[in-house]
């Protein structure tokens, strides 16, 4: 079973997040990492490959330095990588990104497309659905378990109450959540090997992308304003001298919560 796993480079959790006030674009000139949720997707793809054979290709859209994120997927064990990188893509929204990824995927061989549940920067979580829609194949999102039986996928989709079990034929798009597995660490041998694995960088021209659908101008989302959330204020500390329960009840009542 051939698998395409879509990955994104995001700014590191500890890095200072800054928005450019003219475009509301995120300043990516800080430490960047492979989106942590995507590590679960890469791991899941590798486990399926190890059990059922096939090839894993990591597909990414991002600036040139996003090759590092693709290399990490290769170091973990993916076979090949594709990075779509073009200045014209900067500022694309989730819809634009899905359009680009779908176009890139059309030129690749896969039976299954895996995503992390969302990115830690944009946090929209809708790219997997939009890609599935564009490719005209089913989507199963927020999965905590994936099993492959022949050309049938048996998955558990996490809900607030528990999970729902689904079956679905391939090809399909799946997004997986944190905890579905423990992503492997790239070994030194893996990192050395990744330097020699094929990583193709494609620009907008190579994919014949429609310029009106990409970049900031092609975005259907408009950011009107943004602000840094105010720091959380300190809570009220209740010392329990026997009247603790009473005080908590009074507090909840005063907030009209009970």
């Amino acid at each position: 079973m051939n698998i395409a796993v879509c990955v994104k480079q995001v700014i590191d959790t500890e890095a200072e997040k800054k928005l450019d006030p003219s475009s509301w674009r995120l300043d990516r000139n800080v430490n960047c990492i492979l989106n942590p949720y995507d590590e679960y997707a890469v791991e899941e793809a590798l486990r399926i490959k190890e059990a059922h054979g096939g090839q894993v290709v990591a597909v990414c859209m991002g600036p040139e330095k996003a090759t590092d994120a693709v290399r990490k997927a290769l170091a973990m064990g993916a076979d090949t990588g594709v990075l779509v990188s073009d200045e014209a893509l900067a500022g694309s929204d989730a819809q634009g990104t899905a359009y680009v990824l779908a176009e890139a995927l059309k030129g690749l061989e896969w039976d299954l497309i895996l995503f992390g549940v969302r990115s830690t920067d944009g946090e929209t979580g809708c790219v997997p659905a939009a890609v599935a829609e564009r490719l005209g194949i089913p989507l199963l999102s927020t999965l905590a378990k994936v099993e492959v039986e022949g050309s049938t996928l048996k998955v558990h989709r996490e809900t607030e109450q528990g999970y729902v079990a689904y079956e679905c034929p391939t090809p399909a798009v799946l997004s997986v959540i944190k905890g579905i597995n423990e992503p492997r660490y790239p070994s030194m041998m893996g990192i050395m090997g990744a330097k020699k694995k094929p990583l193709e960088v494609k620009d907008a021209g190579a994919l014949s992308l429609d310029k009106s659908r990409i970049g900031l101008d092609g975005a259907k989302t408009r950011v009107l304003s943004a602000r840094i959330p105010e720091p959380r204020k300190a809570g009220v500390k209740v010392e329990d001298d026997g009247s603790g329960a009473q005080k908590i009840a009074e507090f909840l009542a005063s907030e009209k919560l009970v």
């Binding site: 791991e43 597995n181 423990e182 992503p183 492997r184 660490y185 070994s187 030194m188 041998m189």
Partner: peptide, 23 residues
């Protein structure tokens, strides 16, 4: 020897245990 990865707080190997290479 490079450090092992994927060892939990009690020193047990996790499913993603990766022994450090000997260089």
């Amino acid at each position: 020897r490079a450090g092992d990865k994927g060892v939990d707080a009690d020193g047990n190997k996790k499913s993603n245990y990766e022994p450090g290479a000997d260089l």
